[in-house]
Amino acid sequence: MDGRAVTPGVILVADGDPAVTDRIASSLRDQYTVRTAYTARETLDSLDDDVGVVIIDDEMSDLDSASIVDRIRNRELLCQVCVLTHDVDSDVALGSPPDARLRKPVSRTELEGTVERLLLRATYRAKLEKYYALSRRRASLAASGAGEDAATLDDRLQTLRDELADALGSLDYEEAFEIALDIPENGSPD
């Protein structure tokens, strides 16, 4: 866990229609590092701890989006998932709910707003895990009496503390508890 990227800044765009994938990817490239995938398999292969947000089409030919979301959750990846749908009410009952849904065709403003919000959530969660891992390490140092790395660790902890407070400033507390306690959103899309 200590090895996870603290800023999972990569956006992974996956749509069965390469033209749509590339259009979405190019609109995000100004601001973010973007990867693309054209199948569910490619999407799952491309996932790692650097990916903060995955945008997937709900009509990939080789796997439905709910199953993709399930597989992402099962791998305990921190990335946030946005499903592009033709109908916001589709596949509500099946599998793990995504973190966001956008109805196609997606406007640029809507896309950018959603990516920014999901990236904030992913980044907060990644930093929180790092903060815990370092707090744990600092605690074991204190217990063993070894003090050499303590000052370095304290600096890193203080930086993370400030960054977490910044991130929480942009999240409401219900959302913050949801992300921190890692319990998927329940039920219907909003």
Binding site: Y132, A165, A176, F177, L181
Partner: peptide
């Protein structure tokens, strides 16, 4: 302890704010 830690990180921030 990990879950408690995450819970408290949010709670203490909120108290502070």
């Amino acid at each position: 302890v990990e879950t408690a830690f995450y819970f408290l990180q949010v709670l203490t921030d909120q108290v502070d704010r």
